[in-house]
Simulated assay, not measured.
Amino acid sequence: MSVRFLPLFLFLPFSVLAQGFAGLGTDAEGYETPRPGYEFQFPADHGAHPAFRIEWWYVTATLTGDDGESYGIQWTLFRSALKPFERQGWQNPQLWIGHAAVTTAEHHRFAERIARGGIGQAGVIATPFSAWIDDWEMAGPDMETLSLSARGADFSYEMNLKAQGPLVFHGDRGFSVKSADGQASYYYSQPAYAVTGSLRLPEGDVQVTGQAWMDREWSSQPLSKDQTGWDWFSLNFDSGARLMAFRLRGARGDFTSATWIAPDGTTRSIPDGLVETAPLETARVAGREIPVRWRLKLPAENLDIEVSALNPDAWMETSFPYWEGPVTVAGTHQGRGYLEMTGYE
């Protein structure tokens, strides 16, 4: 669906706003909010939660082509509720946005799709699993085995994902606190997909293999009103260990959280203040100064690394603009991963 034909109200939940990035610091009245002690129910929780205001199914992958080059892909489906319920037809208050991208050292290609729920154009079914918007789809018999496809004006991809480890629950068993005020989300990941597939690019078709990471998160007010954006890292180390870490930026200072994932899939939650993140270098991207090289330290795991963007220009000029791209890791640990940065003006 062409963006120019959509009514203006469709963009309201995602406009760039005074209260937090994409309105995530606005009031949650009328919506359900996360609570500690939630017992996840699968496969149901792989599906949508329309009583919560925001939700996403978020896949990133670091890949190596049969040409020896490094690639990154993104596949994301966002759900945003105008009202906390679901119904069939055009009066459905659930809105959907899809983002897809392919990144190399030289190019960053992306596309966006926008849809309303209730008419079959976009949605998520928990079992057998299917998430789609237009002809983009992530589907499989379950979340262990998935196919993934998307296309834009100058790219397309088809991937097969196979989980190689357990789900990971961030924070307190999936209750992930985002601020000193207690705002939170439900947040779990599958960080250990093995990937095979193909890219179709203007330069030619490429067969690829690599690793993918999927994040599942839903909430109604995950940020405090003074928080304006975040820096989020998902890193796969050559040792087999993994790290999720984020820094939320606000007028009252930063709030951090991390999850250390051992090679056997066991996890350790890292509370606020114990992971250190510091920008080392910025680049001028889309008229903004964006950090494209970082230092991360996690003393509890003897981690001291530099994280560098494969392509500093990995800017998503979508309805809500942000930076998203693959990164390389050097220092005490080596590897690859993904970095997302929001709220930079």
Rank of each mutant, 00 (worst) to 15 (best):
A18F: 14
L296T: 03
L82K: 04
Y193M: 07
D135Y: 04
Y157P: 03
P166Q: 06
L146C: 08
G37L: 04
P13S: 10
I305F: 04
F233I: 05
R116T: 07
R4F: 13
Q221D: 08
Y186T: 00
A278Q: 15
A314H: 02
R293Q: 12
T342Y: 04
T318P: 01
M138G: 09
T104H: 08
V275P: 00
G337F: 05
S179H: 08
E324A: 06
G182C: 09
T332H: 02
T209M: 12
S80K: 11
V195M: 05
H108S: 07
P128W: 07
I119Y: 00
Q91A: 13
S239R: 04
F78S: 02
M316A: 11
F246A: 03
L8F: 11
W132F: 14
V307A: 07
K162Y: 08
E69F: 07
R216C: 10
P222S: 01
A139G: 11
V3N: 05
R200S: 13
L10W: 07
E86S: 14
F85Q: 11
G337D: 03
P34S: 06
A258K: 02
A251G: 09
R336P: 00
A184E: 03
W132M: 08
P141D: 14
M143T: 13
Q211C: 08
G273I: 04
F129C: 10
A258E: 07
T33G: 03
G120F: 03
S130H: 09
L6P: 00
Q91Y: 12
E158I: 04
T228Y: 15
G47Y: 01
E112I: 04
V275L: 10
G210S: 05
G174Y: 13
G123W: 00
G117M: 04
R113P: 00
A245L: 07
Y344W: 12
Y186M: 05
L6W: 03
I73P: 00
R216E: 10
A51I: 14
G335E: 06
P34R: 08
G204V: 01
K162I: 12
S130E: 13
D264P: 07
V124G: 06
F40C: 06
T332C: 01
R151Q: 14
R295N: 15
R288L: 10
T318W: 00
V208A: 08
E217W: 08
S176K: 03
A262N: 15
S176W: 08
N92M: 05
E324L: 10
S269Y: 02
G89I: 07
G120T: 05
L17R: 14
L199W: 11
M138Q: 12
F85K: 10
W56C: 02
P128A: 13
I125Y: 04
D45Q: 06
R252H: 12
T277Q: 15
A283V: 01
K297I: 10
P263W: 01
W232L: 11
R53L: 07
L8M: 11
V307W: 01
G23R: 08
V285P: 00
F21A: 12
E106R: 10
P141K: 14
Q94A: 08
M138V: 15
P50Y: 06
